[in-house]
């Protein structure tokens, strides 16, 4: 690939998704764009770059961005954040929101939906203490394909085995074909999926008590990380909670959030009272 084509494409991808592509990623870009070249009846990646120089084709840009953004995900990924949610965050909110009986949760960069559905399964498991509560779980992703997929709640035999205990598979899924499993309607109704871009229009509004935004910031440069954290901060009450991925932090990036001592991966708005959250 020509250097000027790589520069153009990586700049467009960065603008659209925040993903930073160093020159060492040229081979990856080439391999991921093969299908787009074919789909658009073009011959080479040069043709793709040339088409974008002539006209800012939004559909083409969306396709390129989707091809480059990774979508790996599985149920209860890393487990610890979900234990934290079930044992600490949810009980604390049941107390704090006792009068409103309404909790809103955002799974940002939801990919194919496993994180959002994992949270829904936990809420279903805790249904005894959530009687009469309204629990909103919203998943957003910048990929239209991923949002469509997530809404179906259909997963392969491989996907339903990664991180998902067999008892939860039995309880919340139905087998729709030999190796395809679908979340039951009762679970799917607990989650909404929408398109949203963390850099431009997150696709959600209002206020979220808990935001999961894991393994997203690692792909961004520092100014972009800061912008995303600012956006999330603007959608969160002072007693909200932000969960980042294991390799991510707010330190040195944003003063809107602070770490919670002893709780790896958990961040709270900077104005929140300093105390470790009591376990339920």
């Amino acid at each position: 690939m020509k250097a000027e084509d790589f520069d153009l494409l990586s700049k467009i991808i960065h603008q659209r998704s925040g993903l930073v592509l160093g020159p060492e990623k040229a081979y990856l870009l080439e391999s991921r764009l093969v299908s787009i070249v074919r789909k658009n009846n073009m011959k080479t990646i040069e043709d793709v770059a040339q088409a974008l120089r002539i006209k800012r084709d939004e559909a083409l840009i969306a396709d390129i961005t989707e091809a480059m953004t990774t979508n790996e995900s599985f149920f209860f990924r890393d487990q610890k954040p979900f234990t934290l949610f079930q044992k600490n965050l949810l009980p604390a909110l049941v107390t704090a929101r006792a009068s409103r009986k309404h909790i809103r949760i955002w799974s940002a960069a939801a990919s194919s939906g496993q994180e959002a559905y994992s949270l829904a399964m936990i809420c279903a498991e805790e249904s005894a203490r959530l009687q009469g509560w309204r629990i909103e779980i919203i998943g957003t992703d910048l990929s239209r394909d991923m949002v469509t997929r997530a809404k179906t709640g259909i997963y392969s035999q491989f996907e339903v085995q990664r991180g998902l205990p067999i008892t939860l598979l039995m309880k919340y899924f139905q087998q729709i074909a030999g190796d395809k499993w679908q979340l039951k309607d009762s679970l799917r109704q607990m989650v909404q999926f929408r398109e949203g871009n963390l850099l431009t229009d997150p696709g959600v509004s209002g206020s979220f008590d808990i935001v999961f935004c894991r393994n997203v910031l690692i792909y961004f440069d520092i100014p972009t990380k800061g912008r995303v954290l600012n956006t999330i901060s603007g959608l969160m009450p002072p007693d909200g909670s932000l969960i980042l991925g294991g390799a991510e932090t707010v330190l040195g990036i944003s003063d809107k959030f602070k770490v919670v001592p002893g709780e790896h991966g958990l961040y709270v708005p900077a104005g929140a009272p300093t105390q470790t959250r009591a376990s339920a």
Binding site: Q79, F158, G163
Partner: peptide
């Protein structure tokens, strides 16, 4: 319960659970 075919990720996930 693991349904074949399986891989190391599936095994690790089950053992963690």
């Amino acid at each position: 319960y693991i349904m074949k075919p399986f891989d190391a990720d599936i095994v690790r996930g089950k053992l963690e659970q």
